[in-house]
Design a protein around this nucleic acid. Structure first.
Lengths: 211, 211
DNA sequence: TAACATATCAAACACTTGTTTGAAAGTAAA
DNA sequence: TTTACTTTCAAACAAGTGTTTGATATGTTA
């Protein structure tokens, strides 16, 4: 059986069930805490299935990663007919939906966010294929908003300030949950958060102009 | 031997060596990945020492926590003789030094920051004793800067925006390291980061006034 | 010194983890 | 059907983990 057949015929049912289960479990517990046994249980497969189909837990994680949604996000915020400020608002809104909306079936991206603070061997791939382009994209976007010429290093700090605000809601979620116990995000709340971040960031950027 | 003696006599040498080693190892690897064996090796003690002196790894972690530095930070930024904006700048500077300066012997605080995204049984204690007061403190500070009356929820989002920017440099450190491989922070760089965050935040807050 | 509590240690325990194995079941072509 | 190959499975493996144990040292007190 060739590679191509291996990837398309229905003998891959278990394989794709594993991938989907992996995304759920990894995004919930992170690479380290997620166990092969839990993934296999969710996929209704034998414990040995992961190593048979993927070779290792790490390779399963790597193949479960999917950056399509992040790429689509950038494509959607690139329309030249709308001004940069509005494009930023669109971007932040979609980004926060990816990060926070559990219904949004974007566990492929959420499983990524968990690993940023806790290096796994796959982090190099994540940074190279997803984060670096994303930072470059946001850098260009912010560069169009701040009209005055600014140094590359300064622009970088703006990018960090924006991502810092966004990622806080995901990274510090366990803390926020304890600070107000009835926390849960519906779409309206996520959009409100996104609007705050956009307002806050745009206000800071625009105030830079007079300098 | 009473409890009091137990805490003061020199028979506690091993005990305090364990506490110090725990702070180093926990702040480096986090609670989950840190191993009792590594802590004991660093403390030059037997593996059984942790359970003999503390009962469990978790209790060792709990006792190794120390919020004094965070409390001192708040006390230093409360001087009423300087205006709120300058107090904010002081706070952010000290906070970033705690978060980023490896020399600064503040591993007690850094070991805390690692756990925020990855709940351990001790997170409740951390949130209750350290983070909640810290958020409240920064909330009051920001409230003095934004003169116009704002809702409690809005103020909260300002606090999140500030902490998000600060914590980003710690939480996303593995990512930043890969984005520019020659990354390392000396005091001047940390102060530059702190200044950016303060500038960015104050610009955003001041721009809010006309609304 | 003798008796006693405390502290240290090597070894083992109990458990979880990712992974491997070898047999059984399923599938498709000859 | 027979043959060859793929997939599944229960069981075991190997390594790492926090913890416990029982003996041995150490220090204190009577």
């Amino acid at each position: 059986m060739t590679e191509l057949q291996h990837a398309s015929t229905d003998c891959t049912q278990t394989r794709s069930r594993l991938l989907e289960a992996a995304r759920v479990v990894f995004s919930q517990h992170g690479f380290q805490r997620a166990t092969v046994r839990e993934i296999c249980a969710l996929a209704d497969a034998n414990v040995a299935a992961v190593n048979y189909h993927f070779g290792s837990k790490e390779e399963l994680f790597s193949q479960a990663l999917n950056f399509n949604r992040l790429k689509a996000l950038q494509a959607a915020s690139i329309d030249p007919d709308i001004n940069p400020e509005a494009r930023l608002r669109l971007f932040v809104r979609d980004f926060m939906l990816i990060l926070l909306d559990e219904q949004h079936a974007s566990s492929q991206c959420r499983m990524m966010a968990r690993e940023l603070a806790d290096p796994t061997p796959v982090l190099d791939k994540i940074v190279h294929e997803a984060i670096a382009p994303l930072h470059a994209f946001v850098g260009r976007l912010l560069g169009q908003i701040v009209i005055a010429p600014i140094e590359e290093a300064t622009l970088k700090r703006y990018v960090y300030s924006l991502f810092g605000q966004c990622l806080f809601y995901r990274n510090s979620h366990p803390v926020l949950q304890r600070l107000n116990p009835d926390l849960s995000y519906d779409i309206a709340q996520i959009e409100a958060i996104a609007q705050h971040i956009s307002d806050f960031t745009l206000a800071a950027l625009n105030a830079k102009i007079p300098d």
